[in-house]
Amino acid sequence: MWKRHQRKLAPWLFLAPGVMMFISYVIVPIFQSIWVSFYDWDGMGPKTWIGLQNYRDLFQDEYFYIALKNNVIWLTLYLLSVPAGLFVALFLNQNVAGIRLYKSLFFFPFVISQVVVGLIFAWFYDPTYGLMVKVFSAFGLGPIGILSDERYVTYGIILAGLWPQTAYCMILFLTGLSGVSTEQIEAGRLDNARGWKMLWYIILPQLRPATFIAVVVTVIGALRSFDLISIMSDGGPYGSSRTLAFYMFEQAFSEYGFRMGYGAAIAVVLFAIMLVYIAVVVTRMYRDERGR
């Protein structure tokens, strides 16, 4: 039987360990979170079935809408890392002396921990001794408390997140540029395609797979933003920099009462937003591929 069906069975045998881990650590916890969201539970004591009450409370919670609004801001501004990574990749895609060193320097922010990135920018924003104060004072401006001002804190944290995310998108586009057809580029030059025309009509269509991955990963990173917020502002001031992921953690695991069911409801809403967005992007990409 093995000899007759070896070609069919061998791939499944190689896939089996990864599939089992994916089911155990991704699929099963998703359904567990959905199930827990229908209970009032502190994580240790007995569960009490309350049906959709967590969701009713959630949609009447003003802090939920603040976190949702911040997620929209994260999603909008975080996508700037995709074109920024593309232009950095185009700049680094040259055969000149020392280009490997420059590539390493640009990729460095993605290698270091997000905790380190958060600490670096927290020191940078420090209104007393930070480098930003020195820059502002050189132009005759006073200090601004970025992380202590409700108007600026979310944007300051997003700026910190853009630094490593741009480096990641840069690597994706550099990989894509290595597979760009030189024949198409030469043909474009013969047709007098230069600059933006070359980029828009010849290079970008060949970078579609890299662009798709960069957009999906960036969107997921924006929606699940947590670590930079925890390090730089801890959700403050007055909860103004919370996102859904951070608010979920606060409700489920912090001193706010260990509301595991309520935190699970937030997680389900966040998962639904991710699922809808990724489904739309994948469907659009599939239609574009079929139309080509």
Rank of each mutant, 00 (worst) to 15 (best):
F136Q: 12
I231H: 03
R287E: 10
E255W: 11
L207E: 05
A265T: 02
A16M: 13
A97C: 10
R194G: 00
A245E: 13
W41I: 01
V219N: 00
W123I: 07
P164M: 06
V26D: 05
G179F: 09
V82K: 02
W200P: 01
M260G: 06
T48A: 15
V111K: 03
W74F: 15
G235I: 04
M21V: 13
L52V: 12
S230M: 15
A245C: 03
R287C: 06
E186T: 07
R259M: 08
Q32V: 10
G142Q: 12
W41C: 07
W163L: 04
I171E: 12
G130P: 05
Q251N: 12
A89W: 05
I220T: 14
L141Y: 13
D227M: 06
W35D: 12
I171C: 02
F173P: 07
Q165N: 14
Y262N: 01
V116L: 14
S37V: 01
Y277W: 13
L147I: 10
I171F: 11
E62N: 12
K8Y: 12
R7V: 08
L75G: 14
I158L: 06
M1E: 13
F38D: 04
F64T: 08
V215C: 08
M285A: 09
R287F: 10
R100M: 08
F87V: 14
M44Y: 10
Q53E: 15
T76C: 15
V36P: 03
V82I: 12
L75W: 10
G142T: 09
V269A: 06
F136T: 08
S241P: 14
Y262A: 01
V217F: 14
D191C: 00
I120Q: 06
V82P: 07
L13R: 04
V269I: 15
R151N: 14
T218L: 00
I99F: 06
N70K: 06
K47W: 06
V281Y: 14
V117G: 03
Y238G: 13
Q206E: 09
F14W: 14
Y102K: 09
V180Q: 07
M232V: 08
R284T: 12
M44Q: 10
V117Y: 04
D126W: 09
R224N: 14
V153C: 05
K103A: 09
S254M: 05
L275Q: 08
V153S: 09
I157R: 02
L204P: 00
Q114R: 08
R208D: 07
I99D: 05
A264I: 00
F246Q: 05
W74V: 02
T175D: 08
A10I: 15
T283R: 13
A10Y: 11
S240P: 10
F106W: 12
R224V: 15
Q32D: 07
Y125L: 04
I266Y: 00
V96S: 05
V82T: 11
S104H: 06
V36S: 04
L79W: 05
I266L: 15
N70C: 09
L15P: 08
V133C: 01
L141R: 14
P164N: 10
K103I: 08
R56L: 11
